[in-house]
């Protein structure tokens, strides 16, 4: 790998940016939905990490033919298809949980939920 500039590492830079940004949102936001958004961004960065190196410039789909000599690696795409399914399932489940939490607690803000739980705990302690 030559000492290329920003352009040569472009995909990596995007990947890392998405990764860190996603993780940051998960950690820093108290809103359960925003956390899930962050989580999705974080997962998306991984898709990029896998797919980008699989593509060779000038390469085509790996259908053997005498006209082409350079092929892209198809395996990362297959893997990431699976990963996307997993990611969607996770997001769906997370959202479903958020809905249930909204129904029982009346809020999707982390600090308000914690406060509600603590209030119940204190009431229990006071009773006993």
């Amino acid at each position: 790998m030559s000492s290329g500039g920003v352009l040569e590492h472009f995909t990596y830079i995007v990947t890392v940016f998405l990764m860190v940004a996603g993780l940051y949102v998960v950690i820093a936001r108290g809103n359960l939905i925003k956390k899930l958004v962050g989580l999705s961004v974080f997962q998306t960065s991984v898709y990029l990490l896998y797919i980008a190196p699989g593509k060779l410039i000038g390469g085509t789909a790996p259908i053997l033919s005498p006209h082409y000599t350079v092929y892209s690696n198809p395996l990362p795409h297959v893997l990431i298809l699976t990963a996307i399914v997993v990611g969607v399932a996770t997001l769906a489940l997370g959202l479903a949980l958020a809905v249930r939490i909204k129904e029982t607690y009346g809020s999707i803000e982390e600090d308000e939920i914690t406060a509600a739980d603590n209030a119940v705990q204190d009431a229990e302690d006071a009773r006993s």
Binding site: L32, L93, G94, L97, A98, R100, I101, T104, I113, D117
Partner: peptide, 8 residues
């Protein structure tokens, strides 16, 4: 629910 969410 919150425990499951956090674990998720």
């Amino acid at each position: 629910l919150t425990a499951a969410y956090r674990y998720l």
